[in-house]
């Protein structure tokens, strides 16, 4: 059995989790502090990928990055670079789809953060960077970790947008979810079962992690 789809799925999910982690926290931190109207608008825009069908997200991405798309056109003309139908195109699609999960959980955590801790740190002369990484982040740890796990799970299972921008090429862009679909189309049920079981196992592990995190959170650490 060729394990490339497992490897490919994991690297895509991991890299896009790292990207959404930083982008999501960055967006959450600044939007939590933004004035009300701006907050409402940005919140809608940034959450959109969560409610849109993944194929619509994929469609938008193609408009932007395909060789005759808004940005893809220049990349192709100037560097002869073609992003679509590569494994790293899937990083882009999974990042976009998983981003709202990270962003929303992190924002919830930041909003429930006791502002007085920030103020206390500032009046004690601690730098804002130090306060963010050593006081705010550890205090919001549970919420942010839950966001990371959810984003990772979403990235691992992404199908719609990924299949549109990265397609299915065995040994190059195949992920678990696209492989299961291809195997089913080829009536290769035995192999499809194996991949389904692998997927099921990973999903259960992720859910278990989320539950453990939530339990810890309720206990108030």
């Amino acid at each position: 059995m060729d394990l490339f789809p497992l490897y490919n799925s994991l690297r895509i999910a991991l890299i896009s989790t790292v990207i959404t982690f930083f982008l999501g926290i960055f967006a959450a931190y600044y939007i939590a502090k933004a004035p009300r109207l701006l907050k409402g608008i940005l919140d809608c825009v940034l959450t959109l990928p969560m409610v849109l069908p993944p194929t619509v997200v994929g469609f938008f991405l193609l408009i932007i990055i395909s060789p005759n798309g808004i940005i893809g056109k220049y990349l192709f003309e100037w560097y002869n670079l073609r992003i679509t139908m590569t494994w790293y195109a899937a990083i882009l699609s999974t990042s976009v789809v998983a981003f709202p999960l990270m962003y929303r959980t992190a924002r919830g955590a930041f909003e429930s953060f006791d502002k007085n801790l920030l103020y206390a740190g500032q009046t004690l002369g601690l730098s804002n960077t130090y306060i963010f990484w050593k006081i705010i982040m550890p205090t919001c740890k549970q919420g942010i970790l839950a966001g990371v796990v959810l984003a990772f799970a979403r990235g691992l299972g992404e199908y719609g947008a990924t299949s549109m921008v990265a397609g299915y090429t065995p040994n190059r862009t195949a992920t678990i979810s696209t492989t299961v679909y291809q195997l089913w189309r080829q009536s290769n049920d035995d192999l499809a079962y194996k991949w389904v079981l692998i997927n099921l196992f990973i999903s259960l592990a992720v859910l278990l992690a989320v539950n453990l995190l939530e339990k810890n959170q309720k206990r108030g650490n």
Partner: peptide
């Protein structure tokens, strides 16, 4: 606030 050297004690203590 970091440059002001002013101590502020909070009602809820705000210990880290």
């Amino acid at each position: 606030p970091q440059k002001r050297r002013i101590g502020l004690l909070f009602q809820n203590y705000a210990l880290f």
